[in-house]
Write a protein that binds this DNA or RNA. Structure first.
Lengths: 199, 199, 199, 199
DNA sequence: TATGAATGAGTGTTCATTCAT
DNA sequence: GATGAATGAACACTCATTCAT
């Protein structure tokens, strides 16, 4: 029984991974249900045993891949590190995802984050921003960041920087090798973090 | 002849403005050609006298609205102001657009900037980033910015911040009134610019 | 303008008539939208300019063909003829439709009258029965029919007889020529009407 | 072996009864094979051990429920009662089925009797009509019915009345309690039978 | 016997685009 | 220029049926 459920779970995952690859390659709208099935090596009808609709596949891609990242961000928050270090860690976590799961990043960058419709269906979307905001607020409270910045806008500024680096890699307009990711990380921290700290 | 051209131009503009409103409201994919025509008060067939396709309407929306902004950014570059001031001005120009042309911003944020396909068709997309990069490079050269930041990534970081603020307004997750725009501007400059300058 | 509307109306009718023929031949469920379009000699997409859906075509078939018959039945009711004559006329009107519009009868018999779903969407369905019931009630009131029959059930009995004759013709289990229709009419009246009258 | 066959027969019956309930509730076309299996509490694949196809289930519903009724009608024919009494008995048998097996009646009324396709596959369909016709012919021969009615059409008329009463109950447009069935029976006999007899 | 994963043919509907008027 | 009827490619989704286990 457990094995059976396991097999089912494996197949689901197989479909989902195929979907990630296809969405990453062609974009969600241009991807047909048949493309996903073909990529997974199954008949397209099977997809509907595991997912309610093409839209739901996209949601699952998000939930079942991004949630890992969100959990790691949350665990950073629970640390008692100084706020600048926490921010640095969050940035690292997000940026390094590009190296581990480039296709997932491609899909997330392209399909999520700009669509009001998706944002409504998926509550988790803004979570990284919210986490950043909380860290900044804590940093201000502890005197680690200057008191005259608005945490709401500052969070957007920091998150936007991270997001844009990923976007640059996804769209191929930024160098995207391992060293480049490290360099981007450094630049990000130098600019955003120093900007947040007392001069 | 001139009148004729003027009338043609007017009608074209009328359709384009209708398209902006419709795209802003429903998103490009969910907008039907008939919706645009209806919004403009004409038959949908007429759209094809002025545009080759629905895609081309989207491109025109970009070119004919965003180009003004790009021109103003370019004119900032020609100034001999200090680099930090230039950056500040660029940020102001982009952010204030939210107050003047919110629908255009909605469309640009939602439809451009994440699509490799569009990016290929529209070369101008990255122009604000490029301008920012040039300003940063100039600033470094003049000793106004620190020498140890990578201008390429730094430009992405700065542009990402601007972009995310607009996105926050478009998606309604940031306060978007006139005062808020001013506050966002301030926060952006404090964080990004100070981060760029020598400590 | 009127001509234009006329042309549109004509085309709609052309589609509707094609639909009647196709539905009569294959039944509604087995008929594809493409069959109707092909029968009408147009592209299948055009059907959706005139009708909202395949279901709506079926409803239109009913409304725009059966309503004539219902009107004629209603006009019989307004006569001051004796009730038996009125019943006879109603029966004649319905039965003769087989000769004038056999395909319409085929569709009505096969698709309507047994489907609770359709009955809900189309209120007119029971109208012939209701008319018959009113005539019987009037006949009883005037002493033309015996007082001891229940008009509700009697109406069902009379209408059922008519309906079954049409069904017999549609299904080919009754002789269906012109003379046969006349003979059926006679039999129907002899049996049902005499049964209703005082012995 | 007998036990095995019995168990098999039981399961088959269990599926068939489930099918009757489901078809009665949603209609044949709207019923999925999975619905039947779910109603029976088994996996849908199992259905194909007992029936060749969904269509065949419907046929079995008919044969294995309606045949009882046909047998009883046949036994009435073998009686040497007067023809009017025989007709009365046939009517009673059919109408009372509504009280005993309402779901079967629902399915039979809705799915059989109007479909040429089914009529071809199931020869028994017209049997009640044929029986009625034979009784009428016998009645005419014995002088119990008038000689001037056409037995073919008269049979249709009588059967149509019965059929319409059932339909009225199935569709909820006639009162359907026990007393109502009795009243309908009375009305039917008064109208149809008296109409058949010599005035 | 029983399960339910897997298949894939089948279809209604949408909508960008064309073009006769 | 302006209209909107006409076209037809494209596509998500359903579901009866099969079959390995």
């Amino acid at each position: 029984m457990v094995e059976r459920t396991q097999a089912v779970e494996d197949k689901r995952r197989q479909l989902l991974d195929a979907a990630v690859r296809v969405f990453a390659r062609k974009g969600f709208h241009a991807s047909r249900v048949g493309d996903i099935a073909e990529e997974a090596g199954v008949a397209h009808g099977l997809l509907y045993h595991y997912f309610k609709s093409k839209d739901q596949v996209l949601e699952a891609v998000f939930h079942e891949n991004w949630s890992v990242l969100l959990a790691r961000i949350a665990s950073v928050e629970e640390t008692d590190e100084p706020a600048p270090d926490q921010l640095r860690h969050i940035a690292t976590i997000v940026l390094r995802t590009w190296l581990h799961l480039p296709d997932v990043v491609r899909v997330v960058i392209r399909e999520f984050g700009r669509s009001p419709e998706l944002a409504e269906r998926i509550g988790d979307l803004a979570q990284p921003i919210d986490a950043i905001q909380r860290v900044i607020e804590r940093g201000i409270g502890r005197g680690e960041f200057r008191k005259d910045v608005d945490p709401v806008f500052a969070a957007a500024v920091v998150y936007g920087s991270i997001d844009e680096l990923l976007t640059g890699w996804v769209l191929g307009r930024l160098p995207a090798g391992e060293d480049d990711v490290a360099a981007a990380e450094r630049t990000l921290c130098e600019v955003s973090l120093l900007g947040l700290q007392e001069p």
